[in-house]
């Protein structure tokens, strides 16, 4: 599917969700639940909290689909909601007694550690801000301008976060 086609499909789907179509909402969930889950997992490093972020984000999408103004891609809009939910949950967690998991992934019980796990471990050494930019660029394929819009920070800051994240990763993986 081409990028443009995907953008138009997303907007059509969201307009159907706004009209209260259950089936469209189910399709929307199928398209976004895993992406939001992994984004939240990258930010919060807790599967439990990431699941909560997906729940809250989807409920917010159902309730406010009609407020989507088309100023950004639907994906950027959804990730903006997810981001707010994630940081909201994090604040609530910090006030409470529950501790988030420390790792992005559980250690492999086998001796052989896969390349993916080594890289995930390296990602784990980055700051939350750096992990987020790396995820949005390399998993979601967002341009630095889109990341800047989503995070509400200057484009130069996005590029510099990526630059330093990449240097750290190269160091850890060397």
């Amino acid at each position: 599917m081409s990028e443009t086609r995907a953008v138009i499909d997303d907007q059509r789907l969201l307009s159907l969700v706004a009209a209260g179509k259950d089936e469209a909402f189910h399709r929307f969930y199928d398209e976004y639940a895993n992406r939001v889950f992994r984004y939240a997992l990258t930010l919060l490093r807790s599967r439990h909290l990431a699941e909560e972020v997906v729940q809250e984000t989807m409920i917010a999408v159902w309730r406010s689909a009609s407020k989507y103004a088309g100023l950004s891609k639907v994906s950027t809009w959804v990730f903006g909601i997810a981001r707010n939910k994630a940081f909201g949950l994090l604040r609530r967690e910090e006030r409470g007694s529950r501790h988030p998991d420390i790792r992005l992934v559980e250690p492999d019980p086998a001796d052989a550690i896969s390349r993916e796990q080594r890289v995930l471990h390296a990602l784990n050494t980055l700051s939350q801000e750096q992990r987020e930019v790396v995820f949005l660029a390399f998993y979601e394929g967002l341009a630095y301008q889109e990341v800047a819009q989503l995070l509400d920070i200057p484009e130069g800051t996005v590029k510099s976060r990526m630059y330093h994240a990449k240097r750290k990763l190269a160091e850890v993986l060397a």
Binding site: N34, R38, L41, E51, Q55, I59, R115, Y139, L173
Partner: peptide, 26 residues
Amino acid sequence: DLEGALKSLPGIPSGGFEKVSRQIKR
């Protein structure tokens, strides 16, 4: 490497949609 690693992150457990559905009561 990054793309491969990020795609290997765990996916969301099943049953999530049902939970959302129940909550929105629609």
